[in-house]
Design a protein around this nucleic acid. Structure first.
Lengths: 240, 240
DNA sequence: ATCGAATCGATACATTGTATCTAATAGATA
DNA sequence: TATCTATTAGATACAATGTATCGATTCGAT
């Protein structure tokens, strides 16, 4: 209250008793933010809602974060951390190790579709992102066919590109489902008439054949097969 | 002016002469939006700024779009359209065709880094996105090793995943550079001390070796080599 | 016990997407 | 040609968001 507050004491309301401020931490903030993003999408992650869920005012968060972007960066890194605990790949052949890491990333992305939406922004340089990259480099580096760090690096980029690209497809659908508020089946049948009309133009014969004839195998099998194919490419004539 | 406006004629201001409303079209709206996104990043694409650049009020756009998301979807589809004109791949071997399409996508993504940021959202179902997919299916379908639409579909997904994943890496850097307002060199040396400290922990030996020893070839060469590797994998034991 | 520094959060503000409503125009009808 | 109606442009308004500011409070050190 300012020294020269013009209000008379008798008219001035008593300051409302402040509830004891809740203890916060980056960890708890990020946890809540991730919960909200999982449940209601990235758009539901507002500083107000996150702080509110923690029983604090929005501005409290600025003690732990400089901007909202930093919160998103922390969320991303937390997902990498999940991948690391899930995809511990110390054992097995290099292919098994790479596959374990890839599976971990895919699973994490399916649990957190918003993760994929954040892939397009800044590069990921958080400690867990680095650790994941490190693990991947190590796993790929165990391939006997690759000689020298250059070849390993290139092969790793290739594997990463494959994982990210694939996972994006699957997660994009999950996001579409979430944002539209429909079930997957509802969403598919909602967009079907449009696709049907496009196909009816005759300009998309291959797509037509795909939607008519392709067996829709489980996405997991498709993912692993594609990865095998990439690993074959690496183990074959070489990347570098 | 309402019939029973209480204001006297003499006190009522003359309606300000409206400038003749500018002719709009989705095309011009999208063109301006893309220009702004290229120049100043996705964040600069607001309905107000786009409409303003066209000499119209913000609400005019709602005649052409139902939401801002639709504008973004149109922007994405316009980029696919660029890819199609650039990557006309009718001639050459299947590998040459696929490579041409892949290059076209890479170039488009480098011209429009924001494109990559929109990859994480809804699936791309615009007519040009479909046409690009169709072209890719056709090109991959020319690979003699692939039998049946299932194998072609899987191989196409694989190729697409590789392209998107790779291009993301490159574009993420471009976005970081743009958003930070630094040059690429400045940005790299700004984030270097952090990386150095992380490496100094000793927890990232492979990364350390990479930053020390890797020859940084031109990204284009890396892109093509990785693609070759993927195509080898496809042409080899097969995806399906 | 008192001072200084850190921190909490109320308030405020500019910016965004978008709903609503009024006014102006264009097209149809007489 | 004059009048009515449907469409559209844009002004205004509003709720939500990220974040700056600043007074008030609390805590630690003296």
């Amino acid at each position: 209250m300012s020294k020269n507050d013009p209000t008379l004491l008798w008219e001035r309301p008593e300051p409302q008793p402040r509830p004891a401020p809740v203890a916060l931490s980056r960890e708890s903030i990020v946890r809540v933010a991730i919960e909200r993003a999982d449940a209601e999408g990235l758009a539901a992650v507002t500083l107000r809602s996150v702080a509110g869920a923690l029983g604090a005012g929005p501005m409290r968060l600025y003690g732990y974060l400089k901007t909202k972007d930093e919160l998103l960066a922390l969320m991303v890194d937390a997902v990498y951390s999940e991948m690391l605990t899930e995809g511990d790949a110390a054992a097995g052949s290099w292919r098994a190790q790479v596959t374990a890491l890839a599976q971990a990333m895919r699973q994490a992305a399916l649990r957190h579709p918003w993760f994929v939406a954040l892939l397009g922004g800044r590069p990921h340089q958080g400690p867990n992102a680095l650790a994941f990259l490190e693990a991947m480099l190590a796993a790929v580096g165990n391939a006997p066919q690759l000689e020298g760090i250059d070849a390993i690096f290139q092969a790793t980029k290739l594997v990463n590109a494959y994982i990210l690209g694939t996972v994006r497809d699957e997660a994009a659908e999950a996001i579409a489902v979430q944002e539209s508020g429909l079930t997957k089946a509802e969403w598919q049948s909602a967009s079907w008439p449009y696709l049907e009309r496009m196909i009816a133009t005759g300009r998309f014969p291959m797509i037509a054949k795909v939607v008519r004839d392709v067996d829709h195998l489980s996405p997991e099998i498709v993912f692993i097969r594609g990865l095998d194919c990439v690993l074959n490419g690496i183990a074959g004539p070489g990347v570098g």
